[in-house]
Structure formats: C-alpha cells, structure tokens
Simulated assay, not measured.
Amino acid sequence: MTAHTDWPGAVEILNEHGRSDIVLLCEHASNHIPAEYGQLGLDAGHLQRHIAWDIGAAQVTRLLSARLDAPAFLGGYSRLLIDLNRPLGAKGSIPVLSEDTDIPGNVGIDAAERARRAEIMFSPFHDRVAAHLDLRVAEGRPTRIITIHSFTPIFLGVARPWHAGVLHGAASDLAGALISGLRNDVALNVEANVPYVISRDGDYAVPVHGDDCGIPAVLVEIRQDLLSTTPGIEEWADRLAAALPAAQRQTVG
C-alpha cells in the first residue's frame, strides 16, 4: 500500500457543480485506517462491522449523486479514528467502546493525537462542506442537506423493526415530506427520528451545517440488511431519488 492510498483525502467530492438543490453527505463512507494505527488493536473482521463504517451508505450516496445530479461529500477514514458526525470532544468522537466492542487503540490517547486526527480527518471534511454551502448561499441557490447513513438490524440485543428512519432537527417539513414519499411503498416501515434522535451533543451535520445556517437538513438511516446486495442498494437509491424531488416540491410549494 502506498503512502497516498494509506492516507487518502479526508473528503471525496463527487459532482461538486451538480444542479440539484440537494447536497449529499456521507460521513461514515469508509472503514479505512492507516497502517500505523495497527487496526486500533482490532481483528480485521471488526473493520467490516458497523462500528467501523455505515455499510452500504457510500454506495447509495454515489448512486444518488448521479441520479439527482447532486454534489456529494464522502468521508475518507473510519469512524473509529474520529467520527465526522460527532462534535469534537464528545463521548463518541473518538470512541473507546463502540456498541459492545472495546477499541484498544483509542484508550489513553493524548491531546496531541486527538488534535492530529481532527486536523487530518475531521476539519478538512467539514471545511469543504461549509465552503460549498456558503458558496451556494452567496449565489442564492436553494439548498437542502441529506446525509446518508445505515443502521444495524439489532443493537445490543434489541431488534429494530424499521426499514428506514428520517431524523431531523428544525427541518420537520422536509423530513415529513420525505417520509411521505418513501411511504408510497406501503410495505415500508419508515418513521421520523428512529433509530435515535438528533441531539446537539451527539450529532454534527444536521445541527451545524443545517439548523445553525438556516438550511433544511435531515439524516436518512437505512437498515443495513437491506443494503447487503447490489440490487438492494440500487433499490434504495431509486426510492430516495424518487422521494427527494417530491419532498422538495412539497416543502417549497
């Protein structure tokens, strides 16, 4: 592995000049951990689990970017090194325990290492997102943020029945319209603010890039077993591609 591939950019940007009103984020797109971190003391199998990334989320984001002609920003490093959707210093920012798994390589790290990860992985991602959003505002372009995630069917022994959730802070109208669009498939169990609730302490993109800037923003969570195959990923990209333009019309009409 070359130094370049071992230390990729903090953010991969797709279709930056896309014409859509939608801006896509995928903070947990990658499970990459540079070799010097020794997999944070974990067996390789753990890096394929949800604790390391959001399984299927990157593929859905890539397809959506193309289907909607929307810019997309994807994170380049594993959430185990530093979580792009947690405020710096928050408990889950650099986890020592993720779900039921200890993360040995994060135990007892000093302030310098925390600052290094923020400088290399966290700040460049969010700086590029913020700059893009600022430019859109300056140009008077309507903007809505959709951040794509996936969740485990079972969490700490508790089954999660939903196929998808749409999480929101201030953007309840956008969330409601998107949920309504997804529910056009009557077989789907889609709810607001599941499997968890957006909070200032536990989330970053929706409150900071969205609510604080007056930009409607929601976080879409898709259950991971539905994204375990290429057809499943394509099906969810198609669903969201159909529901998002309809949601835009409802919230601006």
Rank of each mutant, 00 (worst) to 15 (best):
T101G: 03
S78R: 00
I198G: 04
A187M: 08
F151V: 06
P142L: 04
S93H: 14
R141N: 09
R114P: 09
A159I: 14
W162R: 06
S93G: 08
S150K: 08
L156G: 13
D100N: 13
I179N: 08
L167N: 02
H163C: 03
R160K: 12
I120Y: 00
N85E: 02
R114Q: 14
R116D: 07
A187G: 14
S199G: 13
A187D: 15
L84R: 01
P153V: 10
A159R: 14
S150H: 12
E113W: 03
N193H: 08
L188H: 04
P124Y: 01
D127A: 05
A138D: 08
P104H: 01
A90G: 10
A115M: 04
L133V: 06
T147Q: 07
A111M: 00
H126L: 03
A177K: 10
R128F: 01
F122A: 07
A175E: 15
F151L: 01
V197T: 15
H168D: 06
G105Q: 05
G169S: 05
V129N: 00
L84E: 02
L188A: 02
A177F: 12
E113T: 10
S172H: 14
G75V: 09
T101I: 15
L74K: 08
R160G: 07
L97I: 15
N184L: 13
A90P: 01
D100E: 09
N106C: 07
V194S: 09
G75W: 02
L167V: 01
Y77E: 05
H149N: 08
R200V: 11
V137Q: 15
R116I: 09
